[in-house]
């Protein structure tokens, strides 16, 4: 049973269609990446999952049932636009958000302290939010989204604004939550994070899903037509008719084969002229797939 499911969902604002006939589903224990250029419809899709806006057509299901507000008690949400009550003490704020999700004040306090230790911000609990740095505030917001132990975690650009150390801390936490069986969906522009963390992705452009599925499976759809070589000797083999484009950095070459290019032929030609230390036929990165799929079509 999918934890969250969008079935042919459409949402339009004024004359602009933000989300057009989008379908996706996420299972428990799955990390899902929602990708797309700016203005593609990622935040609009997430807002519909959270009941902040309602779809014009189609259906949103949470935990196997059509959307109902009661289900939101089992959802943790980190919106793209971060916001906290500036004048409130951090601990009071966390207890307040916990209570709004049905956790008792005492439980919320215990969990807040435990999470704060885990994310290395225990010293900040008694401070007012406005006294904390942006990164610290982001961690507080991260905790407030997880305090009620949600089955579904929805995060819009969770890593933006974090330094590498804290970004890694959050990545590790998300992977632990995934291992506990939580369904996690997040939107991002950082393809390296998607490759590292996500099981499945959905790439949206102009409100429509243009690429969706498991990361491994998507990457396998693209032919391996890039070669990384390390060599010593005559580099004239880089003029081979098999090659569309090549960049040579003193013995380290990145080669794009022609659509009909044969990697084995190239290897023979190269071996005849130079000493080969490395010849690797690599699959395209998600970033390349992203640019290839969306390139030239994006609004932003």
């Amino acid at each position: 049973m999918p934890v969250v499911e969008l079935a042919s969902v459409t949402k339009a604002y004024e004359s602009k269609v933000a989300v057009n006939n989008l379908s996706l589903s996420i299972e428990a224990g799955q990390m899902f990446g929602l990708l797309g250029p700016n203005g593609a419809g990622k935040t609009s899709s997430i807002r519909m999952m959270m009941g902040i806006t309602m779809p014009d057509s189609g259906q949103v299901n949470l935990f196997g049932k059509p959307f109902e507000r009661k289900s939101l008690e089992r959802v943790g949400y980190l919106p793209e636009e971060r916001g906290l009550y500036k004048k409130m003490k951090v601990i009071d704020q966390l207890i307040f958000f916990g209570e709004l999700h049905g956790v008792s004040a005492a439980d919320a306090q215990t969990r807040a302290v435990s999470w704060a230790k885990r994310l290395e911000i225990a010293d900040s609990l008694t401070k007012k939010t406005e006294e904390l740095s942006k990164g610290m505030q982001q961690k507080i917001q991260f905790i407030s989204a997880l305090l009620h132990d949600p089955g579904l975690i929805v995060m819009d650009e969770p890593f933006s604004g974090l330094d590498p150390v804290n970004a890694t801390l959050l990545e590790r936490t998300l992977l632990e939550l995934k291992d506990q069986g939580k369904a996690i969906i997040f939107s991002t522009h950082r393809m390296d994070q998607v490759e590292k963390l996500c099981d499945s992705i959905c790439l949206i452009n102009k409100g429509q899903a243009v690429l969706a599925g498991r990361v491994r499976e998507i990457k396998s759809r693209y032919s391996r037509d890039r070669v990384i070589m390390e060599f010593e000797g005559d580099a004239s083999f880089l003029q081979s008719p098999e090659i569309a484009e090549a960049n040579n950095f003193s013995g380290h070459a990145e080669i794009q084969l022609k659509p009909s290019g044969d990697a084995q032929k190239l290897l023979h030609e190269a071996a005849a002229k130079a000493t080969i230390y490395r010849f690797e036929l690599v699959e395209p990165s998600l970033e390349e797939i992203f640019i290839q799929t969306v390139g030239g079509k994006a609004d932003a």
Binding site: R47, G51, I52, E73, P79, G83, Q141
Partner: peptide, 16 residues
């Protein structure tokens, strides 16, 4: 103030 601090989106995910 809540509108400028963008807290509404967090609140609306748990309160109508």
């Amino acid at each position: 103030q809540e509108k400028t601090s963008r807290i509404f989106e967090v609140m609306l995910a748990s309160v109508k």
